[in-house]
């Protein structure tokens, strides 16, 4: 009986030793996880830095009747923007993000003025451009419900946009040739919720956010002689996404996004209102995870909308996790 007990005891020790064999996960492995299997917020002490570049050409817009149409006048408008972004894991559930946009917009037009009475035709070019630092953004993300195999994750975000960009029109040569502002000129604060569920190799996500725009004042129009008070409408946005691993290091993400901005005001002698606007867009995204490098290519395609640009935007970003 004693022998039998010893045999069983030794066998159980061997069995438990076998059951506790685990693969040791190195921090470097964790830094190579993809958008699908990494936690929603960065792990404690992890730092991710990157740069993104986006490009769009102004060609079409959604008019006030929510129809898409070409911009009729001779115009060539481009946006070639860069974002420098830093993400840092303050704890296993708390992340702070800091984004510095570098704005580069250009609108060019050509108008020929014909006066048959005096037999003249004069062609003039108009240029409005903006280049410089835009409004910087600080975001805090906290995992209220961390992700487990059996449940989804829920993350709360707080967001602050500071008017670090130039807010006034400047360098005014005439009514059609001047420098555009690089920032909005007002503070904006917002909060949002983000949920995600991983069913490897797939993940499903959804988010909602609300952003309150504070009042500000600026030179809005090149004809203005003094700053004018304004308040942009508050913003509600929501999105839903589905991602999948095409292989171990390439993920394809699909997202439908909704954006809605309420009516704003400009406090001229006779107050002017800024029309409300909305759009629905689709964003497919390819994300290459090459060790600690993450390369993302995306195109944002506006599907429906009102009082907004209707042009696709192309973006590419490179990030590295330290």
């Amino acid at each position: 009986m004693k022998r039998l007990f010893l045999i069983i005891a030794l066998s159980s020790v061997a069995a438990s030793a076998g059951a506790q064999m685990e693969r040791i996960i190195q921090p470097s492995d964790l830094k190579q996880q993809t958008i699908i299997n990494e936690p929603v917020t960065l792990r404690k002490g992890f730092l991710r830095a990157g740069i993104s570049m986006s490009y769009t050409v102004r060609d079409k817009y959604f008019n006030s009747s929510a129809s898409r149409e070409y911009r009729p006048a001779s115009i060539w408008g481009t946006s070639f923007d860069y974002n420098l972004n830093l993400h840092y894991g303050l704890s296993e559930r708390l992340e702070v993000d800091f984004i510095v946009p570098l704005v580069n917009n250009r609108n060019e037009g050509t108008v020929t003025t014909i006066q048959p009475v005096v037999n003249t035709a004069v062609t003039k070019k108009t240029v409005q451009r903006s280049a410089g630092i835009g409004d910087c953004r600080l975001t805090l993300l906290y995992q209220v419900i961390p992700e487990k195999e059996s449940r989804f994750s829920l993350t709360l975000s707080g967001d602050l946009l500071a008017p670090t960009g130039k807010k006034d029109v400047s360098g005014i040569k005439d009514l059609n040739n001047y420098n555009l502002p690089t920032g909005e000129g007002n503070f904006r604060a917002g909060a949002g919720l983000f949920f995600r569920k991983i069913l490897y190799p797939y993940s499903f996500s959804g988010a909602i956010g609300y952003f309150y725009n504070f009042s500000g004042n600026k030179l809005i129009d090149p004809q203005d002689t003094k700053s004018t008070g304004f308040k942009p409408g508050n913003i509600f946005d929501a999105n839903a996404g589905f991602s999948l691993h095409l292989n171990e290091w390439i993920a394809l993400s699909n997202e439908i996004g909704y954006f809605n901005q309420a009516k704003g005001t400009q406090e001229y002698l006779v107050a002017r209102s800024i029309d409300s606007r909305w759009n629905l867009d689709y964003t497919p995204r390819l994300v290459f995870q090459i060790r600690r490098f993450r390369i993302t290519q995306l195109v944002s395609i506006p599907l429906f909308g009102r009082n907004m640009d209707a042009d696709p935007e192309y973006s590419m970003s490179v990030q590295y996790t330290f």
Binding site: D59, K60, Y70, R71, P72, A73, S74, I75, G109, T110, V111, T112, T113, I114, Q115, P116, V117, T123
Partner: peptide
């Protein structure tokens, strides 16, 4: 969509036509 140069035809001091 290919746009042409916008033309602003001013026939008299009070009449003008913008053509896109």
């Amino acid at each position: 969509g290919i746009r042409s140069v916008t033309e602003n035809v001013i026939s008299t001091s009070a009449e003008a036509v913008n053509v896109n």
